[in-house]
Design a binder for these strands. Structure first.
Lengths: 135, 135
DNA sequence: TCAGCACCTTCCTACAATGGGAAGGTCAAG
DNA sequence: CTTGACCTTCCCATTGTAGGAAGGTGCTGA
């Protein structure tokens, strides 16, 4: 099948499929006589794997490792577990960060009347006249 | 004061101060005879404002608007409130997304024994053999 | 048979925010 | 007069994705 069909079937855009090939995430597979890339269901399967991993927030570099492990039948499930656990920890850290931001914003929003008057605790907070959560 | 001092005082790196000037976020202020940028406490105050807003996750584009509102004494606190509320909603949406990812990851991690054996529900999940949370 | 359209190819550009580094100018202390 | 710590500009890299230009391919309908 052509790249467009593989894109549709996998949920990865044709643009991205070419990109993944360019950075060596997927192999430079077969070409037809006209130079068009040719894909089969295994390729689509792999693309879907990548797509799922992206949806879970794995970076392309992490996915590179995951793909290696996926292809390697002698792998250790410990390696996968470790990678995923580290990634989960990253996400949890990010959530905590965002929650801190959200809490501060909610506080500021609560204090700001939000009408036609110019005085605004949000701006005051940003300008450092109020307690602010650090980075 | 020189850029390095302003950087230290504001928590914004010299590199970023130059960048903010280049993109017009802050004005191209005075230069000394030798071509060095010169800053005063008002500049530092503005940089700290930017820094705080960045810490709260505002984009430089949003900060551009916030700075305009901050400088404009005839502003409407409603505008600030609206901008901040929208930003808070963005953050909350992002938190929900990350929490969904984390939940799926935790499920997969829970199912994966993570030892020397090769079979791994995490890889199976990514390859689509298990229920996965969509994007 | 040719026109048109949908597809494909490569290559370059952009985004957002930040950092790294090179090549060179400036200034104060020793 | 050298050394070192600043400063200047300019270019490049990052991460993941998209847009677009310029050109080739191939099917379909008139």
């Amino acid at each position: 099948m052509q790249i467009g069909t593989a894109a549709e079937a996998s949920g990865v855009s044709a643009k991205m499929i070419r990109h993944y090939e360019a950075i060596g995430l997927i192999s430079s597979g077969a070409r037809r006589i006209n130079g068009y890339r040719d894909y089969d269901s295994r390729d689509v399967h792999e693309l879907r794997f990548i797509r799922s991993a992206r949806d879970l927030g794995f970076s392309l570099d992490e996915i590179r490792t995951l793909l290696d492990l996926w292809r390697n039948k002698d792998r250790n499930s410990r390696d996968v577990h470790q990678l995923a656990a580290r990634h989960l920890a990253d996400i949890e850290r990010k959530i905590v960060e965002l929650q801190a931001m959200a809490a501060t914003l909610r506080e500021l929003l609560h204090a700001c009347h939000g009408d036609a008057r110019p005085d605004c605790p949000i701006l005051a907070g940003l300008s450092g006249k109020t307690s602010m959560a650090g980075h």
